[in-house]
Structure formats: structure tokens, C-alpha cells
Design a protein around this nucleic acid. Sequence first.
DNA 1: CTTTGATACTTTAGGGCGTAAAGTGATTCT
DNA 2: AGAATCACTTTACGCCCTAAAGTATCAAAG
Lengths: 266, 266
Amino acid sequence: MVVFAGQGDARRSMELLWGPRVVAPRTGPGPKPGLSVEAIVAAAIEIADADGMAALSMRSVGERLGRTAMALYTYVPGKTELVDLMYDRTLGELPSSFPDSSGWRAAALALADALWDLHLRHPWLLQVSPARPVLGPGEFHVQETLLSVLASTGLPLSRVRWVVAALFNIVRGSVQAAAESRQAARETGQSEEDWWYARSALLAELAPDLPARFPTVARLGEEGEYEASGSDEPYLEREARLSFEAGLELLLDGVEAAIVKASGPR
Amino acid sequence: MVVFAGQGDARRSMELLWGPRVVAPRTGPGPKPGLSVEAIVAAAIEIADADGMAALSMRSVGERLGRTAMALYTYVPGKTELVDLMYDRTLGELPSSFPDSSGWRAAALALADALWDLHLRHPWLLQVSPARPVLGPGEFHVQETLLSVLASTGLPLSRVRWVVAALFNIVRGSVQAAAESRQAARETGQSEEDWWYARSALLAELAPDLPARFPTVARLGEEGEYEASGSDEPYLEREARLSFEAGLELLLDGVEAAIVKASGPR
DNA sequence: CTTTGATACTTTAGGGCGTAAAGTGATTCT
DNA sequence: AGAATCACTTTACGCCCTAAAGTATCAAAG
């Protein structure tokens, strides 16, 4: 049986996304509400931040607020909508001011950095894959910030939009590796180094022909980047950060080339 | 209670990933196995391809093979490992030959295109977020292919690695939009255009101050890119493809700049 | 001052899920 | 013939989301 998302549902969730966040206390009969949509969303975000998306259930959110799971349904149509709200509210946290007084490149780097931070603070953002855009104020806020910062490159907006998409993808992709490594360490209790060590041993044992089958990968491994990090930071996390910085530089070099090409032949 | 992933579990899943795919028929007492790991993985992939990751359960896989859910546990330790196998086997489908006779750029584009196709054929790949790399032959195969194709830029491998990561992220990010839009259309039965139309109306009603709050986004919307596509292809999907191509060009321009910079001051 | 009706919240229940534990029956070796 | 082995099923438990019905609290109406 196919379930059609009724238009009423769509309206309800858009109202939740765009409606006033502080609702005037009800007048009329019946008990006063003890919760609010915002309180529920905040509790849900706390749970996801602390224990990951897997720990987020209607029960766990209700419990944190001293209610049953079903109490939440007074405020929110269902879990899907709750997650949409979490997602959009969190995106709204992105700072909006990235002055380009030091040039567009510095501003873009600062913005990318803020995006990175946001995702590391709320790693579950990456596990939320809204099948279609949520179209909430937070999502618009992020798009607006990205577009306006990169508009200062002077490129036409129709091209800036692709720069924005690429930058966003590079940030999300690289921060995902960092976030997931961190989460895995917390969930399994096994440090990343221990895991890596155990796996390498297994790999060498079960796939001894690895260097022959994957020569380039092997060559990369041999170049001994692994032990190079003397810091406490886990390997995969450092790796992810480096990938973020390097990927960004490449992309911005590409943007620079586009600017030159556009203004060059005057 | 914290569950430590025992080393035995790790060994078992690595054996499944790297072991022989056609097992010799057992000798000794007891009934002959009617299934195989590969048959189970193939069935699971078919389900995920057709109905998405949400439809994948031990029960559904068992049913497709004419067994109960529990029968699968004879072959596979659990659902996690099954998904890891699905993921790695599917990555192994990526073609490995991308001749650079027309230059590294053409090869890189062809490779990116193959990656795009692979992900569109198996959109659930993007929902599988292995908390840590699976380290199976398929994953190595993809890395090897990416690295060797981009090694033909002449850049040192330590830099090629970052190009690979960025390219991978751009492909995955943009194909995700396309895949999810497609899946949403199939699941809800609502075409993307209908959805978009309904949402725009709601948005205009519930957030009339949108152009003032998000001027750059609004400006982009006004430029009327929306109606431009006269084709049958849904808007979001076309958009995703354009984002893929444009992002790739930007990145490769950046790579070109890096090559020039490296070889320029001779 | 009581009745009515709206409404926040709880209880119960039903159908999913992954998987542990125990049971069944076919097969092969002793 | 008996024992051992092993593919597979049955049953059961605890989690999930949420529909439906019940309960308690309040404001306004009579």
C-alpha cells in the first residue's frame, strides 16, 4: 500500500518550521501545556549530540522531559517531523557574519571552518538524510550565508551556486569521516588506534596479496604518513581535517581560475 | 552497558569480506547448505536497490530466499556485517579501466561519471555510513582506481590522495540529492514537481518575508532557472547533475593550477 | 456552583525490528 | 543402528513507532 503524504501533513510541518517559536499561552478550557515544541526539539538535539542518532527515540526524548513517548505527539506529528525540526534548528546555529575585508578567500575559509565546527558539534546532522529538502529557515539561512559570502568573488550568481554546492559537499564529506571515527570510538569503547592496529594485522593475514592487487594504495601506505602524527589526535580524525583543508584549497584555486578566466580577456 | 566488539567478531567479518566467494561443498554429516553468503548478499542488494534501505530487514531477505530470518544467521553474523558486505561488494562493481590516452582530465571525468552511475544504481550506498572504513576488497578497489587515475596528473601521491578525497566527496554529495529525490518520488508516489509546487505555495504563505530575510537566495530564485528545463527529467535531479559537473570542473581547474604551480618554476 | 467540553498526558495494544535460545529433522560417519 | 553434525524453524524478548482509548485538569457556560 502506498501512503500519500497528505497536504495537511505538509502544512503542519511547514507551520512548525516557520511558525513562532514562543507560543502565546492558551486561553480556554483544559490543562496548560507543560512542554513546547522547542523544548522537545532541544531535548532531542541534546540526546543526539551526546549519544548519537541511534539513541534518539520518542521514548528517550519523552523520558528526558519527564513524560511518556506518547506525550510528544501532542506537540509534534511524528518522529520524522521532529528530526526535520532538529535538523533545521541546528543549521540555524551557523554564524551569519563572515566579513570579506580580507578578501573573499579568507571569508570562504572562515565560513567553511564554521560549517566544519557545526557538523562536528552535531555529527548526527550527517546521518539525517532528508529525502527532500526540509525548506526550513535554517536551511535557507545556510544557503543565504554560503551564497552571499561567495558572491563576493564577483562571479555571477548562477555560477556561485555551484561553488556553494561543491564547498558544502567537501565540508560534509570530510567532516563525516572525522565525526564517525569519533562516534565509533565512543560507542565501541575501542580507541581508533587499537581498532586500526587490529585491522591491519587481520588484513595482512587474510589478504597477503594486497600490495600486488592494489599497488597504488600500498605505495601510499608505505610512504609512512601513518606514524607521522605525533599528536594525541586520532589518526582518522587528523586525516579528515587535512582532507578538508586540502580539498578546500583545491576548490578555491579552481574558483580563482574561474575568476581570472571571467575577467581576464578584457 | 558498553559492548566491546570482540576481536573474534572482527576476524569473522574480515574473513567474509576477503574469503573465497565460492565455498567448496562441505563434507561430513549434516544437511547440505541451501544458501550461501553471496546469495544472501545478492538478495539483500536487490531489495535495497528496489525498495531502499528501509525495506531491508533480515525477515525480508529471508523471505526472498524462501527462508526465515533466522536462517541467515547460519551464514552471516548479523545485519551489520550483511550491510558491510553489501557495501563492499557493490563498490567492487566500479570499472577499473580508465585510459588516460586523452589526458588525465578526461580520465578523471570518466571515472567520476562511473562513480556517479554506481551510486545512482545503488542509492542506498549513501545511507550506509560505516562508522569506520569497512576495509574490504571493494573499498580498496575504489581507492586504487581513484588513486591510479589521478596519479597520472603527475602530482606526488601525497597530494593526489587529497584530490581523490575531494572528488569522491563532490560526487557523493551531488549524487545524494539526485538519488534521494528519486527515491522520495517513488516512496510517496508524489512527483517531484507536485511536491515542489505545493511547497512553494506553502512557503509563500507561511514565510512571506522570505525575500527580505534571504535576499541572495531570493535573487537566485528570481533569475528563473526553474522553468528553464524543458526536459522530462525532474528538476532536483537535473540540478544535482549540473552541480556534479560544475563542481567537478572547479575541482579539476584547481588541480590544473596545482600542476602548473608544481612544474612552473623550473 | 455545577455541568460541559476542550485538552495534556497516560495506558494499552498492535505490528514492525534484530537476534538469543531451543527445537527439529535430514544427513553422514562410526 | 546409533551418534554426531548442522541447516533451518519456532518461540520469545526487548526495542521501536504510533493508533486508540482512557484519565485528569482546567475554563467557560448555564
